[in-house]
């Protein structure tokens, strides 16, 4: 598409009127309401479905949904996830699930928040959820272990409940 460029009038070619009107506009902005969010004191409202940091979830019965299949560990591009699987002990309530993470660590220094872990998870046990401010004073602080990830994740209702049918 071609747009005809209108030739400038003498008045416009002076430029000064346009510059002055522009300066008036910017001057008026000096007194407008500012949009800045003063972050640490004011927090943004996190919408539902926000993809923050990866967390582990439990179902309504309090079962850790992760079965330590290590697919997230495999798919993780920066290799931030480390899982140590274990078998449920013989007297455990969910013995029939067989496998559960003994340790589940996410190195939040390495995590790039890509969401592949959530996408690959066959048990819907790992989600990218609300927490977005991930800080720590040492590398060790940034190693999030299973307990911390479960605490951040909380409960995610499981509509299928496949382990009750097994």
């Amino acid at each position: 598409m071609r747009i005809e460029r209108k030739p400038l009038t003498i008045w416009e070619r002076l430029y000064l009127p346009a510059i002055i009107s522009g300066m008036m506009l910017t001057f008026s902005h000096l007194f407008r309401k500012k949009v800045t969010l003063r972050y640490p004191e004011q927090k943004p409202e996190i919408p539902p479905g926000y993809r923050g940091q990866p967390v582990l979830v439990k179902d309504e019965d309090g079962r850790v949904k992760c079965v330590a299949c290590q697919l997230c560990e495999f798919v993780c591009p920066p290799r931030a996830i480390r899982i140590k699987p274990m078998a449920y002990p013989d007297n455990a309530k969910y013995k029939k699930v067989e496998k559960t993470p003994d340790e589940f660590e996410i190195d939040m220094i390495r995590c790039i928040f890509c969401g592949y872990c959530e996408e690959v998870c066959p048990e819907q046990a790992i989600f990218l959820r609300g927490p977005y401010s991930v800080t720590g004073l040492s590398r060790k602080d940034m190693m999030f272990n299973k307990e911390k990830l479960l605490e951040l994740g909380g409960t995610m209702p499981d509509p299928i409940k496949k382990w009750q049918k097994k």
Binding site: T26, H29, L30, R32, K33, K34, V35, T36, R38
Partner: peptide
């Protein structure tokens, strides 16, 4: 500061 104010921001504060 002024550029921030012109752009409806706060600038260094």
């Amino acid at each position: 500061r002024i550029c921030a104010f012109i752009q409806d921001r706060l600038g260094p504060n």
